[in-house]
Amino acid sequence: MKELHNIIHREETVISITGLHKSFGDLEVLRGVDFNLFRGENVAVLGKSGTGKSVLIKIIVGLLTRDQGEVIVLGQHIDQLVGKELDTLRLRIGFSFQSSALYDSMNVHQNLAFPLIMNRKTMSKAEIDFAVDEVLDSVGLANKNKQMPSDLSGGQRKRIGIARTLILKPEIMLYDEPTSGLDPITSAEIIDLINEVQERYNTSSVIITHDLTCAKNTANRIAMLHKGRFLKVGTFDEVFGSENEQVQGFFNYNFIR
């Protein structure tokens, strides 16, 4: 796996969250989350299943609405945006789903061309084809143009899912469990891809995971989410060097030491 070489611009915050609360009925998922992401930085959000990690990034992209608190993405309050303004902001954010969420009635080429056809009306067919080939090449699947999602392996689906977000050249990447359900070798390939994306497209990323290997090798900072709040935020060594019982408990259940 490659080492991280990203340049972090600490003077520029791309995501700023303060006092974020979110409940589903009686279930309080997020209970006052504070979080900043700087331009060029990768942050991994770690935590057990059901602690609200995915809810957090769904609020960032406007798929869910917050109950309380403030969420500012690229200088705009996401929950105050509607229609075209929200769409314009979303085009600057890439979201890679845990399940890849490829359109199963379309082949790989159509999956990648679809966001361009719908959002970049001035692009010609030749320009779209070129963009699709370029992004497929960047995720190492140049020859998979005509395949249907059902014919791809789990790792390939993840790559195509990432490619579909990259085609719109986002400034922020949100990865939801990028290595879940993959074998260690394919996981390592996806980790390399996340780092390559960061270098090539100069993105800032939030990586939701419970895989410590992924977090250690992709993130500049780790944020440990427990019971709806961040227990600890810092570098990998800072977080897992802490005496906190919950953090140590999470660390000990993983293979990495």
Partner: peptide, 25 residues
């Protein structure tokens, strides 16, 4: 069934985050 399957496999959410109005499409 088609839209239900798209909903539970997050394909509708994927459209929304790509700035495509899934209701319209």
């Amino acid at each position: 069934a088609e839209l239900g399957s798209m909903k539970v496999t997050e394909q509708i959410d994927a459209m929304e985050v790509s700035a495509i109005n899934p209701y319209k499409y």
